[in-house]
Nucleic acid binder design. Structure first.
Lengths: 185, 185
DNA sequence: GTCTATACACAGATAGAC
DNA sequence: GTCTATCTGTGTATAGAC
């Protein structure tokens, strides 16, 4: 077997995990390198800057949500109820599987009043999420009302994640999602 | 007039403003000192460490909320509707008067998965908030139901603050509060 | 492609003159 | 009580050997 070379993708994937746990400013390039058993020097061979890594991390994480969570909303062969139930399950797993809650909300509250660097990428994530929810809700509501409700759902989930982090208690998010299901189902 | 000496209280007050704008990790002792036109050396004469300043900043801010916002809930001479309206107004002002949204939510998402240092103080803030809302809601609901609803209200507000920060748009919080008023009133 | 070594800035914190 | 100077660690980032 030839010498295994680390791919850019593998590095970004492991960096997501570190950024989620430690936040953006608290994470150093050394931390990111360690996670892949690399040195800082090697890391800088692959990426220009920490900002660069973070942008790719956010984009990859957003792509994952699109493929694994938001896509469910568009499976028209399933009933609305099934799609809703499925998205709720996947949402819960996505925000609790690893520590750190919502990578995107964390990044907003940490960086948005300091710099604009990631705002576009962050807004894109929330737009994709809103669109998916609204698409499902259009069975019941008008387009504009569906988007309004979708925004409220997202706010409720994110608020629950804040409280989940505060009390280190996953049932807070679980309960919030169950309430949403009841209200919408 | 003798030489004006800076009090501990003044320093904490100005530090709240910096921490809110820049977050905990991104704020340096030099930043905090500059805000009061002091040097780092002088600053360390008043405080042992950055952690020390942050703890006092959170406590002072929590005290401010208790006196200026949460206290309204207990003014039994006012009608429930008046108290609710008043608290909503004050809540909006408190979270939008300066940039940075909710100091406490910011600190949770920034620090809670890195260290436990501030968890107690942060939990105390949210407990005081919940108690105030629940006290008002007990006119309508049972004690346990009132606390449940209070938690949900807090989650909705905090979620809206996340989205307010994301879109740099204060009307998002304004609308969320108006919805709450309608639902409860 | 990976390493060691290093440059340089800035962080938290302390010492001591005034 | 405030300052300047400094210690020590760590941060981002680069240079150059292998």
């Amino acid at each position: 077997m030839p010498l295994q070379k680390v791919t850019r993708e593998e590095i970004v994937k492991s960096s997501i995990s570190v950024f989620r746990r430690k936040g953006y400013y608290r994470t150093s390039m050394a931390n990111l390198a360690e996670e892949m058993d690399l040195t800082k020097g090697t890391f800088y061979h692959h990426f220009e800057s920490k900002e660069d890594v973070m942008k790719e991390a956010l984009k990859m994480s957003c792509g994952w949500f699109e493929r694994r969570v938001f896509s469910v909303a568009y499976q028209d062969e399933l009933s609305q109820e099934n799609r809703l139930e499925s998205m709720i399950q996947l949402t819960y797993k996505a925000f609790t599987a690893e520590e750190g809650g919502c990578f995107f909300a964390n990044t907003i509250l940490e960086t948005s009043h300091v710099e604009d660097t990631f705002l576009h990428i962050l807004r894109n994530f929330f737009k994709k999420w809103e669109d998916a929810l609204a698409y499902m809700l259009m069975v019941t509501y008008s387009e504009s009302k569906a988007h309004e409700v979708a925004k409220q759902i997202i706010a409720e989930i994110e608020g629950s994640i804040v409280l989940m982090q505060l009390h280190q208690d996953k049932t807070i998010l679980q309960n919030a999602l169950q309430r949403l299901k009841k209200r919408l189902g």
